[in-house]
Design a binder for these strands. Sequence first.
RNA 1: GGGUGAUUAGCUCAGUGGUAGAGCGCUUCGUUCACAUCGAAGAUGUCAGCGGUUCAAAUCCGUUAUCACCCA
Length: 1059
Amino acid sequence: MAMEKTFNAAEAEERLYTAWEQSGAFKAGANASRPETFCIMIPPPNVTGSLHMGHAFNNTLQDILTRWHRMRGFDTLWQPGQDHAGIATQMVVERELAKTNRRRTDMSRDEFTGLVWEQKQKSGNTIIDQLKRLGASCDWSRNAFTMSGAPNAPKGEEGNFHDAVIKVFVDMYNKGLIYRGKRLVNWDPHFETAISDLEVEQIEVQGQMWHFKYPLAGGETYEYVEKDEDGNVTLREVRDYISIATTRPETMLGDGAVAVHPSDERYAPIVGKLCEIPVGPKEHRRLIPIITDEYPDPTFGSGAVKITGAHDFNDYGVAKRGNIPCYRLMDTKAAMRADGAAYAEAATIAMAVAKGERQLSEAETDALNLVPDDLRGLDRYEARKRVIDQITSEGLAVTVLHKSIDKETGAEHLERIPLVEQNKMMQPHGDRSKVVIEPMLTDQWFVDTAKIVEPALEAVRKGMAAQEAGSFDPDAGYTRILPERDAKTYFHWLENIEPWCISRQLWWGHQIPVWTAMVPNLKGEPGTWRMSVADSIPLSRAMDFKRENKFDEDALGGKLTSGGILTMEFCAASAEEAKEQIRKVWIDRAGYAPANLVEVDHEPHMWPDDTNFPVASNDIPMWRDPDVLDTWFSSGLWPIGTLGWPEETEELKKYFPTDVLVTGFDIIFFWVARMMMMQLAVVDQVPFHTVYVHALVRDEKGKKMSKSLGNVLDPLDLIDEYGADAVRFTLTAMAAMGRDLKLSKDRIAGYRNFTTKLWNATRFAEMNSALCRDAVGTDAIRVPDANHTVNRWIIGETARARIAVDEALGQFRFNDAANTLYAFVWGKVCDWYVEFSKPLMDGDHAAETRATMAWVLDQCYILLHPIMPFITEELWALTGERAKMLVHADWPSYGPELIDENADREMNWVITLISEIRSARAEMHVPAGLKLPIVMTAMDDRGRAAWVGNEPMITRLARLDGMTEGAAPKGAITVAVEGGSFAIPLEGVIDIAEEKARLSKTLEKLERDMGGLKGRLNNPKFVESAPEEIVEETREKLALAEEEAAKLKAALKRLSDIG
RNA sequence: GGGUGAUUAGCUCAGUGGUAGAGCGCUUCGUUCACAUCGAAGAUGUCAGCGGUUCAAAUCCGUUAUCACCCA
């Protein structure tokens, strides 16, 4: 059966992948023949995701490493799986719901997560199928999911990832590595959740800055003096206000102070005084102190900064330092608060605080709503407009003179208008929601990263030192990051690490395993029924309040030994375990355990004497923290979690620590650093010994591919058009470390052509019965016994390719491996060996040539397989009866022993000769089809032998017709090679002047080179200092160049003699 | 503002001390029995500028310029 003319990738790929999977070719340990293991963890794609170019690139590299190790007999596992991707997935489902006008809050949490699970089961296989199309050889039977085993996971989603996550949380909590605190966090008003610093994108926008006057309290005045750089007074006036510049007028309502730099002389007279926030009902204008802090930049704006600790990160720092209250102004949707007591009451309390008459606890401060009644409930931007209007109409906006010309009368018109500066500013946006982030003071859970960062730093410091010293040992327990630059990024981030906010106000995710319950108060303080400030406030928060009313013990059975209750948090792997802990506390404090501990849905916002209280009067309620964990908390456990931890599975023992992590630099912080920290914190081992960081795929112009730019190349379209092998090869060839990878279709088409080339070389062999199946007595493993130089040469070249490929892959130089193979297969095998072999297919060397051809092609298939698995597997099957599929074929280990230096030298001589003749012919415009005689004008023995041994190939490829020996005839072109020269008579055909020009040009270049070489050799310092082999090499080069130059000169002289 | 990196052929990029390479594109030629998804030949570079180290610098160091990315 003759082969088709080209490889039909579309037809073959699915068939081949199915065959691999059905034979269990990708299973952990398949084809293992040695004790070493090799394990890669896939960076888990989002479960709702689909394959983009970055995935294609990332997974191609992983697949190459995996297939390469598997063929080499390592016990190999490529562990696949998906990430539950909290925000992203919840977003998908909520968007679905919105289509039918439903919201998540219309249903229960369980109902909603049930829908998410449905979505997961519907779309979760999409990316898996896409990875299969790419040829990814993951062990799909082990496919993992970061939410597997979660409480309401449906059938088929068992597994223990959830258990692992919860166990880690509990352990870290117990070790004091996780804490809860009220902090200013990045709040996403769209998803109504906190997000981590890393999930915030800074986007440059056109911003506006308003300038407002904050009047001094009691109508006080001071002399305001401005000076230029030289100290000359440029402005001197009496002011009764301080001027403030802000980009966020609506947050003025929550100002706690105005700060100026301690060195700022302009405001020195009024530091310590009070000023008035120029907005809100006149009768309740709040006064705030003017303080000093290092933060304000005297050269920016007016030099005075309003401090709104609850809505700005810099202000928060100032507020903490200066003990300034942080008043929260907005709700979870970033609308102005509408809760709590009326403005008048709240403002009165705040005034008392500002005057130092009163202290508020953190919770009391938070409960205070300082939004004036007319602004309550408004969106933050609407509130901004109103605030600006109100201040402006009151004449408290800083104004400038504005000249306008009346269009009709042409009269100039001067007026004062409010000063509004237009500035470009960086504004934080949610990376998922794209809405403006609102810094928000909320209770969140944090990992105390400072406590776990050091081992993660140390492991990489050691790994990088070993890498640098060339003594890297994969089993030494440290980790290297390649390329080195990314290690710097890693260090830089970890050395400046901030606490990691891990709680998210979402429903889809691992719910935080912390319960709160009412327990007896040991301190004997009175309990409380009612808030002093706000009504609807969570119980736990209320407990911080100053207690005003006596607790009625009867409501809880009247058995408390001391005066009250408070709430206490319990971290436990399950509700049952939490109950155990709660009972212990009760017994310890009250001497008995409550009859019933009842888990309620959420924290009761009422008191036990309320008729609607969710539990019976002698039951004790407990409720679980409603928040879920940041997705990266669970993916941070990916290496151990997928291997079955905390169970001590065989796989965990065998494959952990894993070997290589292949990832893009964009998730070094998100993921790599956190895996390092968490694995070290939890199991005290590094998760992998090597992190290979690759480039980001961009479009032809270097732009990041994005849907909004419309420049996305869909890998599946490309696979459809060019085949998976071509796409893979392209990505591999362009994978030079750490750069951007710009992808163009031309390039892919080029590598598709490469697959065709390989296919056709095989077709040639097929037509000449030179395939594995034809070549008796040889196979892929046994190197053929060859005598002919051509065969010995290509065998040596094959060995060189194998050595280079192994070395390149060993160093993660994927592009070197691809380019080596490209050059070998196309440039050596197809361009030369196939051509050389043609005259050898008959005669004495026919059998060994067929055997060699078959072997060489087999080696091409094997060596190319990790990069181009499909076409090579197909050719492997087509060309012979094989014991194993190519995916499990044995990777060769032959080396320099196959390189025959003499064959090498001889074939290089032949190739040079043919190239020279072709070049001369083309430049002399000799018709391509014309066969020419050739005269050997001078030749040493080695040259003669080379000619004799290869004459049929030379005459064929250089289009010659018979060789004679003798003097160069008149009107001939000269071809100089090592050991002698040839002449090709072209009497009457060549243009002598043209030939002269050609030779002169060559000679000129040669002489330039010789000049450089001579210069170096004549420099005594070079001969003294340079390594001997370099000096020797230089001498040889010079000798060769001189020899060739002499021949060219002789040829030129002959031409001159003719005329 | 801080950090990291880049600047090499028309384009996209390799190249970590020994005198510059690849692919694509371009020009010319070619229906040679594996392949036109092909073959043969060719052109194009002060390796961003300046200074330094070295026998020797695209490569190491310093500096300037421009650009990119990350973090504030």
